[in-house]
Every structure is written in structure tokens, then in C-alpha cells.
């Protein structure tokens, strides 16, 4: 089996933009361990789990996100409050690195849209965890959708966000399917 990995061109671009401690720690090659990610076929509706990790919000995390999104609103820069969609970073740290949520890192997964409710603001010093529950999976127009309901809470147990997160996953990760699609291996 030939192991696929990121191209050198992509890796070089990524390496020059890694700034925070979390970014440097995170495995940016989503092909590595791909075979261990949970698959669409494996998900049973209702299965739930807490994230194994926590996300301690540091000033550098919020600032790196604001810079990357060209967001210079002083409300976020001066008050240590995270912009709403900083939740994406938290999700990849917590969900992507949990076994039951590893599917969000599947190479080739497509984002069809998201639904999120926001509650308590996320601030520097907060420690965020998430409870994930497999909410729905369905096939529509020959595409496989998977939705998890994710409840993010802070260190006081207050809900900071509810996120119905959906992705369209590649038809199958079996070796034969990928051979047919010419995707890999």
C-alpha cells in the first residue's frame, strides 16, 4: 500500500503559517491515520461522547484567528472575547481529535452548510469541552451526509454553543472504492 500524504508544496505553505502552540502541536497531514477515522458506515445515530481533550482559550489563539480572517473589530481585539466562528478552531481541536468525531478530518469531505446557536461568549481563560452526539445520517442525491449535534460548555458548565455540524463524506473509504474512484491507493 502506498501511503498518500500532503504534497511538499502544501506542507511548505502550511509550515510558514503555524504560529500558536496549538497549531504547532496539531497534526496537519489529515492523510496520516486516515484509516483510523470513524467512517459514515460505522456511525450509529444516538452514539455520544465527551471530547477527550479540552481547549484552553489563550490570547494567541484568538489573535491568530482574527488575523487569519482579517477581522480587526476592536470588540474582539481589546476585550479578549472570541469572534463567533472561532468555534471552528475549538471544534477541530476537540472533535477532530476525538475518535468518534475523527470523521470531520476525512480527506475529501465537503461542507454543505452549518447551523449554530450561540450562548455564553467565549473568552480568554475559558476551558471548553464538547459533548458530541450522532444526530443524523442520510443519503441524498447520491451523497452521504452526516450530522453531529455538538454542545460546547465552558469550565462553569455553561453552554457556549450548540452546533448541528454536517459534512458530506466521500462515498466509501474502502480500498476498492477508492481504487475505482482513482482517489487513492
Amino acid at each position: 500500500m502506498v501511503h498518500i500524504r500532503l504534497s511538499e508544496e502544501a506542507e511548505q505553505l502550511v509550515r510558514k503559517d503555524l504560529k500558536t502552540e496549538k497549531q504547532k502541536k496539531y497534526n496537519f497531514d489529515f492523510f496520516i491515520d486516515e484509516e483510523k477515522y470513524i467512517r459514515w458506515e460505522d456511525v450509529e445515530i444516538g452514539m455520544e461522547a465527551w471530547s477527550e481533550k479540552e481547549f484552553e482559550v489563550k490570547e494567541e489563539d484568538i489573535k491568530a484567528y482574527l488575523e487569519a480572517t482579517d477581522n480587526y473589530n476592536p470588540v474582539f481585539w481589546e476585550e479578549g472575547v472570541a469572534p463567533p466562528m472561532f468555534l471552528t478552531t475549538i471544534a477541530f481541536w476537540l472533535i477532530g481529535d476525538s475518535f468518534v468525531g475523527s470523521w470531520i478530518k476525512t480527506p475529501g469531505a465537503i461542507n454543505p452548510g452549518q447551523k449554530i446557536e450561540f450562548y455564553e461568549p467565549i473568552k480568554v481563560g475559558d476551558v471548553i469541552r464538547v459533548k458530541m452526539r450522532a444526530h443524523d445520517k442520510f443519503i441524498k442525491r447520491e451523497k452521504r451526509y452526516l450530522t453531529y449535534y455538538n454542545e460546547f460548555v465552558n469550565q462553569r458548565g455553561e453552554i457556549v454553543a450548540k452546533w448541528w455540524g454536517t459534512l458530506i463524506l466521500p462515498i466509501s473509504k474502502s480500498k476498492e472504492e477508492h481504487k475505482i474512484e482513482g482517489v487513492r491507493r
Binding site: S7, A10, D17
Partner: peptide
């Protein structure tokens, strides 16, 4: 790519032009 680093979403569909070309993404 800058957003990939900030969001930790390093899916190759975003950051790897070589792979995207190879699989003729979408």
C-alpha cells in the same frame, strides 16, 4: 492556507493543490 492554520481544518481539499488536481476535485 492561513485560515487552515487558524481553524485547524487542514483538509487537503483546501490546502493541497497537487492532490486536488490529481483527483480532479469536484
Amino acid at each position: 492556507t492561513r485560515f487552515a492554520c487558524a481553524s485547524l481544518d487542514f483538509n487537503p481539499i483546501h490546502i493541497d493543490p497537487v492532490w486536488a488536481k490529481k483527483i480532479n476535485l469536484l
